[in-house]
């Protein structure tokens, strides 16, 4: 494996982690948006707060990591992408800013009115970001970002592959979030909430699965290189995704929620990996390969040092954070809502 491919692989791992964990955080915006009025939705919104509160900032850093690796290792393609996909990137960024800020504001808002305002902004912007990042992925994967940049500002991301990419991103985020929230609700003893969430997650999951497989048809003409990859060397991953996706639905039906989290992660991860494998060895499909896009060799080596160091420093800490948030002590909410569980059984 060449240095450039090793760095690209590290970058792709970060894309994958962002899609899974950042995605689940964004997806909970969908459930927040559709939770109902303030009295009815209170329980779910509080649950969302507890689920993503401690982790969303850490999950968000994967995106930063992708960006900095990209511009350091593949500078020209980074500039090319930024100039071509200016519009969807700015809109995704807008979503990121509004989501993060209003989520924090809502938690400490003084009045219900303020909380509702921040809440709506939080929830709506949570949908914007995955959609536009999905269109960005679609644009790259369908060969619409010229290696020298300055591609068409609009048609580069307003096309079948991009739009499908956006819809699939929103759907998979919501699906992941749904599975995680069902499991959290169930574990925390919110039985009624878990039942309600379970139904909605099933609907989202079926719909998203249908879109993913429907997308394969237009992709054949719109993104031939990717399509050939998906139905060729990445086909096992797509099949795996279908199987684990179906398994997740079944596990939800039979209420095996905590196992469903695993299969859901695998289902989404294999779609994302399918995209990566499908477009390999291109960095910008049909335009420039990973190897040709790479910057100075000394920088690639230095980046791998940084990645290695980050793996040693960050991964254990991240595992500790996830472990803590899943542990018993954390599920009881000592200082915040001492009555939350007892009043709502």
């Amino acid at each position: 494996m060449s240095l450039a491919v090793a760095v690209a692989a590290a970058m792709f791992v970060a894309v994958l982690a962002y899609a899974l964990f950042g995605g689940a955080d964004f997806g909970s915006g969908y459930f927040d948006l559709t939770a109902g009025g303030s009295a009815r939705g209170a329980e779910l919104r509080t649950l969302i707060d507890h689920s993503i509160g401690p982790v969303w900032e850490a999950n968000h850093v994967w995106l930063i990591f992708v960006l900095v690796t990209w511009w350091t290792a593949f500078p020209v393609s980074f500039a090319a992408t930024m100039s071509t996909l200016f519009v969807p990137l700015v809109l995704a960024l807008l979503g990121i800013v509004l989501r993060g800020a209003s989520f924090a504001f809502r938690k400490y808002a003084a009045t219900l009115g303020q909380a509702q305002l921040f809440g709506v902004v939080f929830a709506a912007s949570s949908l914007i970001t995955p959609f536009f990042l999905g269109t960005v992925a679609g644009a790259i994967a369908s060969g619409r970002v010229p290696a020298s940049g300055s591609g068409d500002l609009w048609s580069s991301w307003l096309n079948p592959t991009s739009v499908f990419g956006g819809v699939i991103a929103v759907g998979t985020c919501a699906f992941l979030a749904g599975v995680f929230l069902v499991s959290d609700a169930d574990r925390n003893g919110h039985a009624a909430l878990a039942t309600q969430l379970r139904l909605r997650t099933l609907v989202v999951g079926v719909a998203t699965g249908l879109v993913v497989f429907a997308a394969l048809v237009p992709l054949e003409h719109d993104a031939p290189t990717l399509s050939a990859g998906l139905t060729g060397k990445a086909a096992p991953l797509i099949v795996l995704s279908g199987l684990t996706g179906a398994a997740t639905l079944w596990l939800l039906v039979v209420r095996r929620f905590s196992v469903a989290r695993l299969t859901a992660l695998v289902a989404v991860a294999s779609v994302v990996c399918g995209w990566g494998v499908g477009q390999y060895p291109w960095l910008l499909v049909d335009q420039v390969t990973i190897v040709d896009a790479a910057g100075a060799t000394s920088t690639l080596v230095a980046l791998l040092v940084a990645v290695g160091l980050a793996a040693v420093v960050v991964l254990p800490a991240l595992a500790y954070l996830y472990w803590l948030t899943q542990s018993e002590r954390w599920t009881e909410h000592p200082d915040e809502h001492p009555t939350a569980q007892t009043t709502r059984h």
């Binding site: 509160g53 401690p54 982790v55 900032e57 850490a58 968000h60 850093v61 930063i64 990591f65 900095v68 690796t69 511009w71 350091t72 290792a73 593949f74 500078p75 020209v76 980074f78 500039a79 090319a80 940049g149 910057g295 100075a296 920088t299 230095a302 980046l303 940084a306 990645v307 160091l309 980050a310 420093v313 960050v314 800490a317 991240l318 500790y320 954070l321 948030t325």
Partner: peptide, 26 residues
């Protein structure tokens, strides 16, 4: 585009420190 691979390394380390900061903040 021209200098990304010259100036980028500290940003990569910065990304690492953001991780640490965000994790322990949580």
């Amino acid at each position: 585009g021209r200098f990304g691979d010259v100036l980028g390394l500290p940003f990569a380390f910065e990304g690492m420190s953001f991780f640490v900061e965000a994790i322990f903040l949580g």
